[in-house]
């Protein structure tokens, strides 16, 4: 599904990703861990197409096509979803209106029938209930004045409604208490299938208690320095990152 080959990227003249190699197949969950500043969020941003990052080398293929050549909205329509670390507050834009527009942009791209207001509401209310979001949520402006937990749950709600093939979760666990963490993780787990894949970026192991990864990668100074199975995450929890980063140095 996703093949990242020797990907190098940075901001202005500062290199951040220094040759990432990663293959994600359908049906897999990958966790990317690493200390602050290792390039985790840059990787997510580059894959989603955020402005301001220069790709200086390597490539990222998504279903064998050049992902980096697509505009952000094209990536989204092709099934790539980024759950933002810092979801943006958009005052004045009603959540229901926004979400239905997004769902329909993607359905239209897939050649499927767009949802009318009623069918959209029916579908979204089921998902909102699963995520513990009250009905007034749809009337509120997107993320405006939301608590940290509400914002993250909103990301998961959007993910659920957009039904992506490849979901990248950028530090979705940050700022969540244990109950919210469980709700968010349940949402991700419900989405898992043989047709899609998740890349979970996190600083801490605790999210991986709930979203159990098939692979764990450690990112340090723009490179993946170690890959393993879920036991690697436990080892990191116990020992921290130092033993690996020293090894890498």
């Amino acid at each position: 599904m996703l093949q990242i080959k020797n990907l190098q990227a940075g901001i202005e003249d500062k290199p951040i990703l220094k040759g990432i190699n990663l293959t994600v197949n359908a049906g897999e969950v990958h966790a990317i861990m690493g200390p602050n500043g290792s390039g985790k969020s840059t990787l997510a941003s580059v894959l989603a197409g955020r402005d301001g990052f220069d790709v200086t080398g390597g490539e990222a293929l998504y279903n064998d096509n050049d992902l980096l050549d697509l505009a952000p909205e094209e990536r989204a329509r092709e099934g790539v979803f980024l759950a933002f670390q810092y979801p943006v507050e958009i005052p004045g834009v009603n959540s229901a209106y926004f979400l239905r527009s997004a769902v329909n942009a993607i359905l239209k791209h897939r050649g499927e029938e767009e949802l009318d207001a009623m069918n959209f509401l029916k579908a979204v209310k089921v998902k909102m209930k699963e995520l513990g979001l009250g009905e007034d949520f749809l009337k509120r402006p997107v993320n405006a004045g939301f608590s940290g937990g509400e914002k993250k749950r909103n990301e998961i709600l959007q993910m659920t409604m957009l039904d992506p093939r490849l979901a990248i979760l950028d530090e979705t666990d940050s700022g969540l208490d244990i109950d919210a963490l469980r709700i968010v993780a349940d949402g991700v787990n419900r989405l898992r299938s043989d047709d899609n894949a998740q890349v979970v970026i996190t600083h801490y192991q605790r999210l991986l208690d709930y979203i159990v990864p098939d692979f764990v990668h450690v990112l340090h100074d723009g490179c993946i320095i170690k890959s393993g199975d879920k036991s690697l995450a436990l080892e990191l929890e116990e020992k921290g990152y130092d033993w690996l980063t020293k090894e890498a140095a």
């Binding site: 989603a48 197409g49 955020r50 402005d51 505009a71 952000p72 909205e73 990536r75 989204a76 329509r77 979803f81 980024l82 933002f84 979801p87 943006v88 958009i90 926004f98 527009s101 997004a102 942009a105 993607i106 791209h109 959007q158 957009l162």
Partner: peptide, 8 residues
């Protein structure tokens, strides 16, 4: 960017 990342 947020809206574009959702397909708009």
């Amino acid at each position: 960017f947020y809206l574009r990342a959702r397909g708009l």
